[in-house]
Design a protein around this nucleic acid. Structure first.
Lengths: 349, 349
DNA sequence: GTAAGCACTCGATGAGTGTGAGTGCTGTGA
DNA sequence: TCACAGCACTCACACTCATCGAGTGCTTAC
């Protein structure tokens, strides 16, 4: 990996300008851009030949490449990276788009439904695949547990989190447990855990209830055994909602059916995406852009990710976009950022 | 629509035999089958020319067609229908496949997760798109309601249904409601509704609680207003799980990218499928096969559906398969049927 | 360092052609 | 009346070949 920061000084004004033109034009047209075109339309005081020289330099440094001898130049991942960090201008989000987003958010009051629809809209506006994860509960603050007996030997556990999010889990109890006993255990748990995050609870639950072990029904023991299920974002709870497939297939890269397969792979295999988002989560910044091979995953090496965090009183989730590396970063980044903020505002009200 | 039953007598032995060969071979190979091929390999005592005559007759009656003058014959929807009803032999399900299904079903104990994984497996085995709906609650028998206050003005309503299925809905209450009042209202509702189906409740709730209207907090009024939300399969609850996209795109019909789009359309637009499944639900039979244009929907006119009902103590859902009309019906039908039964058994235990 | 000219490369396009599978039709013989 | 052999005809498909044009790389001149 070349150190991009170092490169900033190494590139002359002219080189930067030409790199800018190549990336910008390629993003717009998906066609490799040639020296003659730049000379004619964008950099009129330079001849095509001079531009070719510059391009050759840029290729040597690793910012550009070309698919075959007589084709125009195409940005490399590194080229995109430089473009994003130093050359690109962020595009203002249109008022109509802001309006559409707010209208969509207001429309439903079920949280998951809202996220799903927002994801669809995000895909539609950006013409890319969109991803939205449901809130990451482990940093949420425990408020209250409620135990409800269901037919036979089932027990419904309701866990409230401070922001108003509620999580329900069904547990299998060995035998029927009397109501007053349930209440008693519930009270104990509530007293001891209130104010902690789910993550803290998960890590210290056993210690905190050690002294109540010798009760009759083994209910506490059941809780200890199920602690992961109760206080972790289980696979089926922390959902990744993927939308906008029909938008992305209009992109010119998908005339080639083999690229098609890779997209299908992506939407069927949520695990890949979950994995990548985890990586993003470790970052400190609010939004993250990953270009092509910057994420090590082989299946996504031709795709870029733009994701942002939404934060609802400490409980966070992610929204983002996946698309070909040739992506309109200047437009997509503000869009994702805006949607993340809008979701946060919506969920916290 | 031609009356197929009538046709059964009208087709000679020879015509039936040749129709059988054409359909069977086309299903296997996806290549239009010609007279010469049949004469050489399948009907050795007939010359190609004679077979052509029979084929011409079958084409006139509407069972076959051919894409262009000098191509082999291809079944029409009507041809498939005749094949399914009279000619086809059901294939026994392999032991290894049965085993895979059971292992998959046992693996998870969360109901939705189980359905989702089963759907994936169904897609993998059949090489088609698979669909599974979550149980249709309106015919489920109400057992118990439970009201749980959440932070601020939210109320979690838990409705238990006799088979052990539980449904939770979050309601927005105007102001905080005291616990004893909640209990009281809960008790009233339980007494009056137990044993009824959700559908009955939805239709008669207002009448059944009319006399309790004059209570303080207006809680009953809230319930009356929310009755649809509470006792109907709301859009976000009755989920259609679609899986197996990456299996179906291996089918030869998807070399053409325009067919590609139609599949994407299908998986993004659950509504289309929900709509079609509703139609299927009205049928009395346990499994239903719809070929191509037999369902009137324009977007699915090149697809067939095979669906079966699973029944868990009166609460039902559907499993099924969607694929090109050229589908191995003899294998798929027993498969879908088997999976439906396996799911029912699993959920009721 | 910049520009101009020229040869070269390579993909895309399109016309032309041959091939093979398959049909439709007709005439003949049982 | 039915079976079938033969022949002409039709397409789709794959292949070749020539052409075109965009674009580069290199060399030379200013």
């Amino acid at each position: 990996m070349v150190d991009v920061d170092n490169k900033k000084q190494n590139l002359s004004e002219r080189e930067q300008s030409i790199l800018h033109h190549v990336v910008y034009n390629y993003i717009q047209t998906a066609v490799p851009v040639g020296s003659r075109y730049i000379s004619k339309h964008l950099e009129k005081n330079l001849s095509a030949a001079s531009i070719r020289n510059v391009m050759a330099d840029l290729e040597e440094t690793g910012f550009l490449s070309h698919p075959h001898t007589s084709a125009g130049r195409v940005p490399t991942d590194l080229g995109y990276r430089f473009y994003i960090d130093y050359l690109m201008e962020m595009q203002q989000l249109g008022d109509d788009e802001k309006l559409r987003i707010h209208q969509q958010l207001k429309q439903t009051n079920d949280a998951e439904e809202m996220l799903r629809e927002t994801s669809k809209l995000l895909g539609k506006i950006s013409h890319q695949l969109s991803i939205v994860t449901s809130p990451h509960l482990s940093s949420g603050i425990f408020e209250k547990i409620e135990l409800i007996p269901i037919t036979g030997s089932k027990l419904l556990v309701v866990i409230s989190i401070r922001t108003g999010i509620v999580r329900t889990i069904m547990l299998e109890v060995g035998a029927e447990v009397p109501r007053d006993h349930l209440d008693q255990v519930g009270r104990i748990i509530n007293e001891r855990l209130v104010g902690l995050t789910l993550k803290e609870i998960r890590d210290s639950f056993v210690d905190r209830v050690r002294d109540v072990q010798n009760e009759k029904t083994g209910l506490i023991r059941l809780f200890i055994e199920s602690v992961d299920q109760l206080f972790t974002d289980s696979k089926d709870r922390e959902k990744v909602l993927i939308g906008g497939t029909k938008n992305i297939i209009d992109q010119p890269e998908f005339i080639d059916p083999k690229n098609f397969r890779s997209v299908i792979e992506l939407i069927e295999n949520e695990d890949i995406i979950v994995h990548l988002l985890e990586r993003h989560d470790e970052s400190q910044r609010n939004f993250v852009v990953t270009v092509g091979t910057e994420n090590k995953d082989e299946t996504t090496k031709e795709y870029s990710f733009v994701t942002a965090t939404y934060d609802v009183g400490g409980v966070t989730g992610r929204v983002g976009i996946i698309g070909p590396t040739r992506m309109n970063y200047g437009k997509v980044i503000p869009l994702v950022d805006y949607v993340a903020q809008a979701i946060a505002k919506m969920l916290s009200s």
